[in-house]
Amino acid sequence: MKGLDSIILVLWVILAFYVSDLLLIVSDLWSGLRKAKQRGEIRSSYGLKKTVDKIARYFNMLFAITLIDCIQMSVVYILNNYYGYGIPMLPVLTALGSVFIGFIEVKSIYEKADDKIKIEYEQAAKLVAELAKSKTNPEELAKAIGDYMKKESEESE
């Protein structure tokens, strides 16, 4: 029965990691919406879509390392219950991954709205530089804009 109790405890710990990361992501979304309102931006479904994509990427990574932790904890469970070792069953990789995600989200929450505006200005300057490289031919300008937008969308994914 002691082994079952430790498995249930570990499951609760893993759940706590997942929930805390989800709460931090929601806090970052709320913070982003406040900053967008402060800058006078229109809040659209694009930002919400980015948040959903971020949740999927984070939780895919977290789920993969949790599976690795399950294997590691299974070995520890066998060592403890059948061979008399006293190794604690801890989801170490899940804890590290969760802390990593939490650090990123806290950093994002505390970014100033002005920093985000500077990034947007830098992106606009890059676009102007790309356009300056092109000739005055409208077809080349359109192609340069399309190439730049495609490159930016690939980099943001």
Rank of each mutant, 00 (worst) to 15 (best):
E157S: 13
W30E: 15
Y110K: 08
D5N: 09
K49T: 07
I25T: 09
K35E: 13
I68S: 06
V92H: 06
L141S: 08
A132W: 06
E41C: 06
K50E: 12
V13T: 12
I42T: 13
I8W: 07
E152N: 05
E122D: 12
V10S: 11
G97N: 06
I14C: 02
A36R: 15
A142D: 11
G84N: 05
V52K: 05
S27L: 05
S108V: 01
S74Q: 01
F100D: 13
M149Y: 10
K143V: 11
S98M: 10
L48Y: 06
V76E: 01
D21K: 05
Q38P: 01
K54N: 03
N80T: 07
W12V: 11
L4H: 09
M61K: 14
S156N: 05
A144I: 05
L15H: 08
T51M: 08
D115P: 01
L62M: 10
Y148G: 02
K135G: 12
A144M: 09
I119P: 03
W12L: 07
G3Y: 00
L93I: 11
A132Y: 04
S27Q: 03
K126L: 06
L62W: 02
Q123P: 00
V26F: 10
M149R: 11
D53T: 05
E122I: 11
F59Y: 05
S20P: 03
V75C: 06
K54A: 03
E152V: 11
G146M: 15
E41K: 15
Y85R: 12
G146F: 15
K107P: 03
Y18C: 07
R34F: 15
A132G: 01
F103I: 14
L23M: 08
I71R: 00
V26Y: 13
I71Q: 00
D147H: 06
K150M: 08
C70P: 02
F59M: 03
L79G: 00
Y148K: 04
E155R: 14
K133W: 01
K151M: 15
M61L: 08
V76W: 01
E154S: 14
D21P: 02
F59I: 01
V10A: 14
